[in-house]
Amino acid sequence: MDISGNTVFIPGSTGGIGLALARALRARGNTIIVGGRRTDQLERIAAEHPDIDTVRIDTADPASIAEAAKEVLARHPDLNVLIAMAGIMRVEDWHRPESFLASAESVITTNVLGPIRLIAAFIEHLRSRPDATIMTVSSGLAFAPLRATPSYNASKAAIHMLTESLRLQLADTGVRMVELVPPAVRTALLPGQENSEIAVPLDEFVTEVVELLASQPDAREIQVERVKFLRHAEARGDYDQVVATLNAADPHGR
Results as ranks from 00 to 15, higher is better:
Ala184Lys: 06
His125Lys: 00
Glu225Phe: 12
Asn111Lys: 03
Gly192Asp: 04
Glu234Ile: 11
His49Met: 10
Lys70Trp: 11
Arg167His: 10
Leu190Glu: 03
Asp250Ser: 10
Ser4Glu: 12
Ala121Pro: 05
Thr207Asn: 14
Gln241Asn: 13
Asp51Pro: 03
Leu180Ser: 01
Leu170Val: 00
Pro11Gly: 04
Thr133Glu: 07
Ala214Gln: 13
Ala235Tyr: 14
Asp131Leu: 14
Val8Phe: 12
Arg96Cys: 15
Arg38Leu: 02
Glu67Ser: 13
Pro11Phe: 03
Ala69Thr: 00
Ile57Tyr: 03
Thr163Val: 02
Ile52Ser: 07
Leu82Asn: 07
Asp131Cys: 05
Ala20Ser: 07
Ser139Val: 01
Arg167Met: 12
Met89Val: 12
Leu82Ala: 03
Ala46Asp: 02
Gly18Met: 02
Ala46Lys: 07
Ala142Gln: 07
Ala188Asp: 13
His160Tyr: 13
Ile222Gly: 09
Ala219Arg: 11
Ala157Met: 00
Trp94Gly: 01
Arg96Asp: 15
Thr207Lys: 14
Ile65His: 04
Gly192Cys: 01
Ala235Cys: 13
Glu211Phe: 11
Thr14Met: 05
Glu105Met: 12
Ser138Lys: 11
Leu42His: 04
Thr7Cys: 09
Trp94Asn: 06
Val243Gly: 06
Arg127Leu: 04
Gln41His: 13
Pro50Asp: 01
Glu204Trp: 12
Pro201His: 04
Arg26Met: 09
Thr136Gly: 10
Glu98Phe: 13
Gly36Tyr: 05
Leu79Ala: 04
Leu25Arg: 08
Thr163Asp: 09
Gly114Pro: 02
Met177Ile: 06
Leu118Gly: 02
Glu234Pro: 12
Val206Ile: 07
Asn247Glu: 10
Gly12Trp: 05
Ala66Met: 04
Ala249His: 08
Ser138Thr: 08
Arg226Asn: 10
Leu246Val: 02
Thr149Ala: 15
Lys70Tyr: 12
Ala104Arg: 13
Met85Pro: 06
Asn6Gln: 05
Ala68Glu: 00
Ala171Pro: 11
Leu141Asn: 15
Leu19Gln: 02
His252Thr: 09
Pro182Gly: 00
Gln41Asp: 11
Ile83Tyr: 09
Ile119Cys: 10
Gly114Gln: 07
Ala74Asn: 12
Glu105Val: 09
Thr163Arg: 11
Ile108Tyr: 14
Pro217His: 05
Ala244Arg: 15
Glu48Val: 06
Ala46Cys: 07
Leu180Met: 08
Ile33Val: 10
Ala233Pro: 11
Tyr152Pro: 02
Leu212Asn: 02
Gly114Ile: 05
Asp40Leu: 10
Ala248Gln: 14
Pro183Trp: 04
Leu170Thr: 06
Asn30Gly: 00
Asp2Thr: 14
Ala66Phe: 06
Gly18Ala: 02
His252Phe: 15
Ser106Val: 03
Thr39His: 15
